[in-house]
Simulated assay, not measured.
Amino acid sequence: MPTSQRKLVQTSLMSIRWGDMDAYGHVNNTVYFRYMEQCRVEYLETLGFKVLPRGTAPVIINAACTFLVPLNYPGMLEVRMFCGHPGRSSVQTHYEIRLQDNETLYATGDAKIVWMDVASGKSAPIPDEWRAQLS
């Protein structure tokens, strides 16, 4: 998603935990998805959307991460979340992972959020409140 087509919506701080590392002494690749997930959940909660398995809710239909520089314990991360323009039921998100107070980009990620009806498993329109935030 080009920079001009995305809006910074959330910046989250989180610690690198000792258990995040793998046998090579750097943060395991799967943990980066958890960092992005935490940032996404914090953002949705600031808008009043609780992650509950009823009604309508956000789900991820794809996710990717590009690992640029290894992260190591200890450290405080800054995860930035950007959103693109919303469609009827989905929005593309982008993430940047850095160490706090450091502009070096350690990883980037992308995830497509689809709003769905939990009972039917089918897509549902993005709530108007969220759409207004993204416009």
Score class of each variant (00 low, 15 high):
residue 51 V to S: 10
residue 103 E to S: 11
residue 103 E to N: 05
residue 113 I to P: 00
residue 48 G to Q: 04
residue 96 E to A: 02
residue 76 M to H: 08
residue 40 R to V: 10
residue 135 S to G: 07
residue 67 F to K: 12
residue 60 I to D: 00
residue 54 R to I: 06
residue 134 L to H: 09
residue 104 T to M: 13
residue 121 G to V: 13
residue 101 D to G: 12
residue 93 T to H: 12
residue 43 Y to E: 07
residue 125 P to I: 08
residue 96 E to W: 14
residue 93 T to L: 08
residue 96 E to L: 08
residue 126 I to A: 01
residue 97 I to V: 12
residue 66 T to C: 15
residue 117 D to Y: 01
residue 112 K to S: 13
residue 84 G to T: 01
residue 130 W to R: 03
residue 101 D to T: 11
residue 66 T to Q: 07
residue 114 V to S: 01
residue 72 N to G: 10
residue 53 P to H: 10
residue 130 W to K: 06
residue 116 M to R: 05
residue 55 G to T: 03
residue 98 R to Y: 10
residue 114 V to T: 13
residue 64 A to P: 03
residue 61 I to R: 14
residue 117 D to C: 06
residue 135 S to E: 12
residue 123 S to W: 04
residue 93 T to P: 01
residue 85 H to I: 15
residue 60 I to W: 06
residue 104 T to N: 11
residue 61 I to L: 09
residue 79 V to P: 10
residue 84 G to S: 05
residue 80 R to C: 14
residue 120 S to F: 04
residue 67 F to T: 07
residue 69 V to Y: 10
residue 43 Y to T: 09
residue 75 G to A: 08
residue 72 N to V: 05
residue 56 T to V: 15
residue 116 M to Q: 14
residue 127 P to M: 05
residue 63 A to K: 01
residue 52 L to G: 08
residue 36 M to N: 00
residue 99 L to K: 15
residue 73 Y to E: 06
residue 127 P to T: 09
residue 65 C to D: 07
residue 126 I to P: 00
residue 111 A to Y: 02
residue 49 F to E: 06
residue 103 E to D: 14
residue 100 Q to E: 14
residue 41 V to W: 12
residue 133 Q to W: 03
residue 97 I to E: 05
residue 82 F to P: 04
residue 63 A to V: 04
residue 121 G to L: 07
residue 94 H to V: 02
residue 77 L to C: 14
residue 120 S to N: 11
residue 131 R to K: 09
residue 118 V to K: 03
residue 54 R to D: 14
residue 39 C to Y: 09
residue 132 A to L: 07
residue 61 I to D: 12
residue 129 E to Q: 13
residue 73 Y to A: 14
residue 53 P to M: 13
residue 92 Q to I: 02
residue 128 D to H: 11
residue 134 L to A: 13
residue 80 R to N: 10
residue 63 A to F: 00
residue 67 F to N: 01
residue 73 Y to N: 07
residue 66 T to Y: 08
residue 117 D to I: 03
residue 99 L to V: 02
residue 71 L to P: 08
residue 82 F to K: 04
residue 83 C to W: 07
residue 79 V to Q: 12
residue 42 E to M: 13
residue 117 D to N: 14
residue 44 L to G: 02
residue 97 I to W: 05
residue 79 V to F: 10
residue 63 A to T: 03
residue 72 N to T: 07
residue 101 D to E: 15
residue 128 D to F: 05
residue 80 R to G: 06
residue 89 S to E: 12
residue 95 Y to D: 00
residue 80 R to H: 09
residue 83 C to T: 13
residue 131 R to L: 15
residue 90 S to Y: 03
residue 84 G to Y: 09
residue 52 L to F: 11
residue 109 G to R: 09
residue 115 W to T: 00
residue 133 Q to V: 05
residue 62 N to M: 12
residue 95 Y to G: 05
residue 118 V to C: 10
residue 51 V to K: 12
residue 124 A to D: 05
residue 124 A to V: 15
residue 77 L to G: 13
